[in-house]
Amino acid sequence: MSAIQNTIRIDNQEIPFTPGQTIMDAALAAKVYIPHLCHYPGLPPSGNCRLCVVEIGNRSVAACTTPAAADQAICSNTPELNQARKALTQMLFVEGDHICPSCEKTGNCKLQAMAYYLGMLDDHFPQFYQRREIDASHPDILLDRKRCILCDLCVRASREVDGKNVFAIAGRGTQAHLIVNSPSGKLADSPLAKTDLATTICPVGAILIKQRGYQVPIGKRIYDQHTIRETTMQEHIPSCDKLKHKGHQDTER
């Protein structure tokens, strides 16, 4: 007799899970897309972006941090949740300097791709991003804090995979910002390398490898050819060993 399989239901679709998986983990493994920007398979979740909020009964929870439990009935792809996700995406745009036509990351930017996916046609909110420092001190890597969405993917990648703890987020609320853990606070005095996962994992144009911009023509970039949903299903990577390997591959493209 086979063992009874644990399952949850997402938008009336039954999917299996194993104990210890979050709702997001189970969804990705089953090729069920829940919008997100700060989650990456193999890294500890943080729940920062809140795009992955789903409903269980009358509760709203982050799919990336909430454990899957037997017989959960979860709503994700609803007009109300997608409208809230679009509003959050609009706020991320106006909180940073996201001028897509002039950005090196355009066509490869997950924030831009998410806006397309959610049908975002305008910023809706007035711009209110604060002036943030650009760090061009590193010979190979540029840090443009004006584009940072505080997803802390670089923080977790540097700590958990690269083993260097280069980045951290300091301050709270509108004063929150990305900092570099080095004696001077500059990238040049950190051990960050262009082969590190922390360098390539940024979903926007906040961390860029120098002299690499605009190498791929418009129309042939990642999200010119595939939606963020399609690429997310292809990127599901379960282990940090594979994450490290992917970081090296990305820098070689």
Rank of each mutant, 00 (worst) to 15 (best):
I179L: 02
R229V: 05
E80C: 00
D224N: 11
C202M: 01
I141H: 01
Q175G: 09
A206P: 03
K31S: 15
I34S: 01
I149Y: 00
G171A: 06
A30N: 13
I15C: 09
I237G: 00
I10P: 02
G119D: 03
L111P: 12
M233K: 12
D144H: 03
E14C: 01
V216H: 05
E14N: 05
A176T: 02
H226Y: 14
D152L: 04
T231I: 13
M24W: 02
Q215N: 08
A113L: 13
E133R: 12
V32Q: 13
D123C: 06
I23T: 02
Q211W: 11
L197F: 04
I207D: 01
P67R: 15
I10G: 03
P101H: 07
L81Y: 00
E104W: 06
P191M: 02
G213V: 03
H248K: 07
P79D: 06
P45N: 02
V180A: 03
N165S: 13
M24G: 01
Y116G: 08
C151K: 02
Q234G: 10
E235P: 03
A3H: 12
D250R: 14
K31Q: 15
M91H: 10
I99Y: 06
N12C: 10
H248R: 10
V216K: 11
E133C: 09
L150S: 06
Q225S: 08
R253S: 15
N12M: 11
